[in-house]
Design a protein around this nucleic acid. Structure first.
Lengths: 149, 149
DNA sequence: GACCTTACTGAAAACGATTCCCACTTCCAG
DNA sequence: CTGGAAGTGGGAATCGTTTTCAGTAAGGTC
């Protein structure tokens, strides 16, 4: 499990970006930001909704989706489609990010990062004439626990 | 646009693999294989259904999904989730494959391949202790036409 | 070729994720 | 205050996908 990024930093960054975009604070959006900040790993919209409920923060599911949509547009969170369900995680303002490997058997997700991969992808974008502003890499297979050997 | 792979070859391969798996021939599954064979690029289940309709091959939508499920399990097609919708394309028996770049503006999809990327991903899987049997790479941004410069 | 078993199929219902709609609340400016 | 716009929650609607079920047909057996 990767260490959680400095939560307060991202949350503050997100809040100021939201303000800068002329959006009001308070309410559901703030709750979503708050919850995402303390989560290191990807969460589905429904999972976020559920956790907020558990924490007695009543937030409508629709508002969670709306908040995530805004955050994604502002590039404050990364969205990742896995098995037809969208998952979200805070995006480090520095641009630093990781990718995921998903186990076919236990469904667990591991994160990894690799500078060489990033460099290669940049170069590929350039070769295609694309102005690449995001990319996903997903590995699928058997994790060390599920495929002992 | 990449040249279409030798259609007959993949279709034949697919048919023989299906037979080898003890599955019956004829009917909806054959239609799906036939259609996929002549399509170079990714297609959603709904798109496949629609095209079969247009070609007067009446195939139920459920059967299209079922056929795609079988083909995916047998690794005869690759499945790619894009924007929460599953898309499929024939998988070359040689294992050779490509990845995709999607334009944020026009939505068009370009394919590319890169041996170095494949090598790097293999190595990453090894480093993680993962028995990686599939991987996706998706680039997003502005295509050359939409971002002139 | 007739028969039987069982896989396969299509249509419709069920389903889960996401979006839309609408009435209500909250915030802010005047 | 007060009016308007942004934001919100809940439920209805939508979309892609899966399941259910009754009917069809493939493939082996005689």
């Amino acid at each position: 499990m990767p260490a959680a990024p400095p939560s307060t930093t991202w949350a503050d960054h997100a809040r100021s970006e939201l303000a800068r975009a002329g959006l009001r604070t308070g309410g559901a959006r703030a709750e979503v930001v708050g919850l995402l900040a303390e989560q290191g790993c990807v969460l589905s919209a429904q999972a976020i909704h559920e956790r907020l409920r558990e924490a007695d923060r009543r937030v409508g599911l629709a508002s969670v989706y709306r908040a995530l949509d805004v955050l994604t547009t502002l590039k404050l969170v990364h969205r990742l489609d896995v098995d037809g369900t969208a998952c979200y995680e805070p995006a480090d303002p520095s641009g630093e990010h990781h990718h995921h490997a998903i186990c076919r058997h236990c469904g667990r997700m591991s994160a990894f990062e690799d500078p060489a991969l990033e460099t290669l992808i940049d170069e590929l974008g350039r070769r295609l004439g694309y102005a690449v502003d995001a990319h996903d890499v997903v590995l699928r297979g058997a994790c060390p626990d599920c495929a002992p050997r």
